[in-house]
């Protein structure tokens, strides 16, 4: 009940949420603000930013509007971030809950698998996967999910191990509740708040991984992405640095917003815990 007032009292959270909401609004409204293909050539190439009011961020080497590209690029970044968050936390929480609650052989097997994934560098895994599956947004989300689920899995398992010893879990067994329902209905919801503190790291990591893959030319070729824009600008980095700097700043701002909002949410949650 007091979560939201508390959230508003933390300036980081307010700034973070404001940034995220702005970017989300831009992403959602991009097709209306900049209808048509953002890849379309609309003006002469390499207009500098803040010169032509019709193209506030200027144009790129081919004369495409940087502002339009930026707005459409936000969609890719946010989609990947959200998709990877749902994927990684969903998969991780599921496997962590099973491992922690079942214990024994199931726990051993699941945790060895988790460790196997942890030993593979996440970005290499993403590279390999996207190369194999072909560049698409779905492939990027899957790749990031597969490299990011181990953190939530281990954290969930640790939480579940402590929660399953609580009296209310014993009480659920005493009334004859099915073990799977106990695991996912009684234990997991109480483990989740702690696990959700990983959200910011996962979302930010996913956005950066997507950008890196696009920069390497492994992004979805049918979509504008900020990573792709930075790669585009690389060729004219000296003469027109804004082509890389503007999407780079967008990336930094988004990641910052994610971290600030995540921090604020975690703080609001933990602050509430002490209350009766």
């Amino acid at each position: 009940m007091t979560r939201f007032p508390r959230l508003w009292r933390s300036p980081e959270a307010v700034i973070g949420l404001a940034i995220l909401l702005t970017i989300a609004a831009i992403a959602l409204l991009a097709p209306f603000i900049y209808p048509g293909d953002p890849h379309a050539i609309v003006a002469r190439p390499l207009i500098a930013p803040l010169v032509d009011p019709a193209h506030p961020f200027g144009t790129d080497r081919l004369g495409r509007d940087l502002a339009a590209e930026l707005a459409h690029g936000a969609r890719a970044s946010l989609l990947v971030g959200l998709g990877a968050m749902v994927g990684a936390i969903g998969l991780g929480a599921g496997i962590g809950t099973l491992a922690g609650f079942a214990g024994g052989v199931i726990d051993e097997v699941l945790m060895r698998i988790t460790e196997a994934f942890q030993t593979v560098p996440g970005f290499l895994l993403s590279l390999a996967l996207v190369s194999a599956m072909g560049p698409s947004l779905g492939a990027v989300v899957l790749a990031v999910t597969l490299s990011a689920w181990t953190g939530p899995a281990r954290l969930t398992r640790a939480q579940v191990l402590s929660i399953r010893e609580r009296d209310y879990v014993a009480a659920a067994r005493v009334i004859g509740m099915h073990p799977l329902r106990i695991a996912f209905g009684e234990v997991l919801p109480n483990a989740l708040p702690v696990v959700l503190s990983l959200t910011a790291v996962i979302v930010a990591g996913a956005i950066l991984t997507e950008a890196a893959l696009s920069f390497l030319g492994l992004g979805d070729p049918n979509r504008v992405t900020w990573g792709g824009m930075i790669a585009e600008g690389r060729a004219v980095l000296r003469s027109a640095p804004h082509l890389s700097i503007v999407p780079g700043l967008a990336l930094v701002t988004t990641v910052l917003g994610v971290y600030l909002a995540g921090e604020g949410l975690t703080e609001a949650n933990s602050g509430r815990k002490g209350q009766p």
């Binding site: 009296d167 014993a170 009480a171 659920a172 009334i175 004859g176 509740m177």
Partner: peptide, 24 residues
Amino acid sequence: ALRRERRRLQMVFQDPLAAFNPRA
């Protein structure tokens, strides 16, 4: 079979706060 029969044998815990799922 055990879950069905558990109905007949119930428990009241010492700390009544700890004995309930805090979110239910």
